[in-house]
């Protein structure tokens, strides 16, 4: 096993998760990002590289832009921990990023486009 020395970022640096099965390396996400936090991978067809993670403002524009649904915006841990809800009927507590997730709520947003 090889290790490399590199600076350790103080904030979250794995802010985007790419589904490698779905990503075709089209770089739509790279090009739409207002803060230019990613760069194209030097190898064609590969998922982009997140270089300036701490400059992301979590707008989700990249996720909306991805034509293949390959991209997930990863909420920072401290915010996963602060987005908490309670099921009224049972009193159970849940949060974003919980260990045993609930089934997703599939209700689409309001609006027809």
């Amino acid at each position: 096993m090889v290790a490399y020395s590199h600076p350790s970022q103080s904030g979250p640096c794995r802010i985007l998760s790419f589904d490698k099965e779905k990503c075709v390396g089209c770089n739509s996400c790279v090009n739409v990002c207002p803060s230019d936090v990613m760069m194209p991978h030097p190898e064609r067809g590969r998922e982009p590289i997140v270089v300036f993670a701490e400059e992301c403002w979590y707008c989700g524009g990249c996720v909306e832009e991805c034509p293949h649904g390959a991209l997930t915006l990863v909420t920072p841990a401290k915010q996963r921990l602060s987005t908490v809800w309670m099921r009224k009927e049972t009193g159970e507590e849940f949060r974003v990023g919980m260990k045993n997730p609930l089934p997703p709520n599939l209700t689409p947003p309001s609006g027809n486009r």
Binding site: V63, T75, G111
Partner: peptide
Amino acid sequence: AHEGKCRVPIYQNLTKWGFDPDKDLL
């Protein structure tokens, strides 16, 4: 679902993790 910085970080995120305003208290 439409306000700035809400579609993906709030609406999609919360519903993906199961939040349901018909049943849950935020």
